[in-house]
């Protein structure tokens, strides 16, 4: 017992340094943006703003285009996520459990979209959409954002379905469940947390997607992030962008907290084959 008492946990200085650097890299920019959002006067060379206040919050949130963009973003993201789940989850199950000709090539093609420089691909798609009169329309943006979710919504659920023990499904068949019942009562609940993680990732990813939304949606469709970029590009007032950033940060923070509680970190790891 005495030897046990003598063993003191060594301080891992290297680990602490890395953790600190990582924290600065992640939290630093957030802090700066956060500070700007509550700043009224901040002139060089001061390290701390001269005057804090909520003036720009009132100005930003008072603009009708901000609220329109927020509602549009939420609508778009919900539609895209639901559509993506409806299309991708059955496809993921097929990829995980069935063998059909061209399975591997099809499966890999979902990754291929992400292997090209995204902007070049978008321009090519925009050219096609122009012919189809989809430019500047809600469904045009839905389509382009749908493509962006495919990878998460196929690859992670495939891993989730593959991780479900086949013997569990067989045991359910054995006690009298039809294949459909097995899927609802056994496969889906087993894969559920990981699939929820995938749905969440694509919801958040779609909400913040800008390139596609801008290229296909402009000028009729302005999502929240597109609006934010235009503020940052066109207005010399930094605070408009900063306030919107903070506003946009809230839903994703809530979503991640919710995910952590409901899903647990393990589900994300499993989704990536961990």
């Amino acid at each position: 017992m005495t030897t046990l008492a003598l063993v003191r946990p060594r301080t891992d200085w290297l680990g602490i340094v890395f953790a600190a650097l990582l924290t600065i890299a992640i939290v630093g920019p957030l802090l700066v943006v956060g500070t700007w959002a509550f700043t009224e006067v901040w002139r060089y060379p001061n390290v701390i703003p001269q005057q804090f206040g909520f003036r720009f919050w009132g100005q930003t949130l008072g603009r009708p285009d901000v609220w329109n963009a927020l509602m549009l973003s939420l609508q778009l993201t919900t539609v895209v996520t639901l559509l993506s789940a409806a299309i991708c989850l059955p496809a993921a199950y097929a990829f995980a459990r069935m063998s059909f000709p061209g399975r591997n090539i099809l499966f890999f093609s979902f990754l291929a979209g992400h292997a090209f420089p995204k902007f070049g691909l978008l321009v090519a798609i925009a050219a096609i959409f122009l012919q189809l009169d989809l430019i500047g329309t809600f469904w045009g943006v839905v389509l382009i954002q749908l493509v962006g979710t495919l990878m998460f919504m196929i690859w992670i659920p495939v891993a989730a379905f593959q991780a479900v023990d086949r013997r569990m499904e067989e045991a359910a068949r054995d006690v009298g469940a039809s294949p459909l019942r097995v899927f609802w009562s056994i496969t889906l609940p087993q894969a559920g947390p990981t699939i929820a993680a995938a749905v969440l990732l694509s919801f958040v990813g779609t909400f913040y997607e800008t390139e596609g939304a801008w290229l296909i949606g402009a000028p009729g469709i302005r999502t929240m992030p597109v609006l934010m970029i235009s503020y940052i590009n066109n207005q010399m007032v930094i605070q408009f962008g900063a306030v919107l950033s903070v506003v946009l940060w809230v839903p994703s923070f809530i979503a991640l907290m919710f995910a952590r509680r409901v899903i647990g970190g393990g589900a994300f790891a499993r989704g990536f084959g961990g």
């Binding site: 013997r167 569990m168 045991a171 054995d174 006690v175 056994i186 609940p189 087993q190």
Partner: peptide
Amino acid sequence: TGMVFQSHALWTH
């Protein structure tokens, strides 16, 4: 028929 599997295959949820 009723089958008992080697890995017991209980439904963990």
